[in-house]
Every structure is written in C-alpha cells, then in structure tokens.
Design a protein around this nucleic acid. Structure first.
Lengths: 127, 127
DNA sequence: TGTAGTGTGTTGGTGGTGTACGACAGTAAT
DNA sequence: ATTACTGTCGTACACCACCAACACACTACA
C-alpha cells in the first residue's frame, strides 16, 4: 500500500486519495475484506489531516467500495470478483477516453498515441 | 476554434481554457502570429466572465505562448516550428505518463493499455 | 487637430463554494 | 476506569468566478 499525492495542483487531496484506493481495489492489490490504512495512519503518512482522509473514505463507502466498522477500522467491501473486474474495466475506460481526447486535440494519430504510451511505459517507474 | 468547458468538476475554468489554447497552439491549429478570440468574445461564447478568460491568457503570456497587444488583441507568440513541435511533444509526454501511471496502478499490461486506447479511439468523437 | 466612439485587455471589490484543519466523540481492549 | 485506537463534527481560510469600472489603442469624422 503505497500512495503519493500532489498537494499543489487543482485536484483536491481527498479525491486523489479516493482514486488511489479505488484503483488499488480494482487492481486486486486490496482484496475484498482486507483492511485499509486507518484514517490517522494514512493522514500521518501523507502529512494531511485525518478528516481529509475520512472524506475520501466516506465517498468510497457511499460507492460500496469500502465499509466502516466504527472503532475497529475501515475495510474493503465484500465485492464479488465480477464487481471488482467491472470496477477495473470502468476505470480503465475512463482514463483511456481522457487520454484519447487530449491526444486528438494535439492532432496526434492513433499510432502516435499508442507509440507515446509505449515510450512512457518504460520511463514510468512502477508504483 | 472550438472550445467546450466543464463548469462543474474540480478543475477551474481558467485552467481548462489555458489547456485548450495551449493544445491548440501545440497542434498547429493556432499558428504563430494568429489572433486568438478576444477576451470578451470568448467570455460571451463560454458564458463566462471576461476576467476569467483574461486570467487564462495571462498564464499563457507568462509561459511565452501568447503575446498581448493592449487595445488590439491577443496573439500567438512568434514561436519557431521547433518550439511548437517541442510544445506538442511535451504535452503528449505529460498526458502519456499520466495515463501510464493510472494503467499500471490498475495492474494492466502494456498490451491491455494500448488496446484500451484503440477501443477508446473509435468511441471518442472528434473535438 | 481634436474629440467622440468602439474595439481591446486589466484591475479592485465582493460573494460564494469547498477544502483542509484542529478539536471532538465513539468503541474496543487492557 | 483508563488507555489507545477508531472515525467524525464545526470552522477559518483560500480560491474561484462574478460584477463594475478602469486604462489603452486605433478609427471616423467634424
């Protein structure tokens, strides 16, 4: 469980946390039923207020991704394998579309767009 | 010159405008020396305040992408062809890395990542 | 030559939304 | 009871977007 956030920039911290957790669940790195870092622990690790982390968790609870047992901790919900797979596919589709939109705006061809991905694939270190 | 913005959502309007203009310049749709829509005109078209557009333009001026001739209008700076190409490449590299980071976080393979791009390429309508 | 008119971008003041914080409340175990 | 953990509540602050008025440049016309 490794999370790094960008404090500056337009996207709120709690949303960054939400996205990371959601992706971790979708990827299988956080299996259903497993425990996620406590609000305080993650807050300390990210140099952030507990309430900020709590807000991200709450959104994920509303989306049925996490469940909270007060006084005990926060856990990944009891999602079926299909639900996890669907979550993953939906996430991948979303980021793909976003990238395609940007690439088209730059006047890139499909080959150029995928080529840029292959190049970036080497450069980006594993999370 | 066609711009659509998302009023809701976390990313500020002025930053959306900044990104669109920058990409238009990088793609060659807005050649060096050409005139960009006036602050007022774009403000009316986007249903937005002139000061908001002005803020976006000012950022692009600071980045040497645009130049302002007060009383006359705002123009794309006198960038060389290499500068434009560099701008385009930098932009493409940035969005590529962002996508790769997300795809890796989802545990996707390179083939799956590029495949998702190809799928999305068909679905996304041209800007 | 000067003066009004229309175009341009810019500035100070204001209201509102939402973030991130410090302090608080609840629960389990010792 | 007390301790140490959990998640949550009210609030100050920052930032965004709006509004109105401003400063500058060119043109038309008398």
């Amino acid at each position: 469980m490794k999370i790094d956030i960008n404090v500056s920039g337009p996207v709120p911290i709690w949303r960054q946390i939400e996205d990371r957790i959601r992706r971790a669940v979708a990827s299988g790195a956080l299996p259903p039923g497993s425990v996620v870092p406590s609000v305080r622990e993650l807050a300390v690790r990210l140099q952030v207020n507990p309430a900020t982390v709590s807000k991200a968790y709450r959104h994920l609870v509303d989306a049925d991704v996490l469940t909270v047992r007060r006084g005990e901790g926060t856990f990944v919900g009891a999602l079926s394998a299909e639900a996890v797979a669907g979550l993953r596919e939906a996430e991948l589709r979303m980021v793909s579309r976003e990238y395609v939109r940007a690439a088209r705006a730059l006047g890139a061809t499909l080959g150029e767009a995928t080529g840029a991905i292959e190049t970036a694939w080497e450069e980006v270190n594993d999370g």
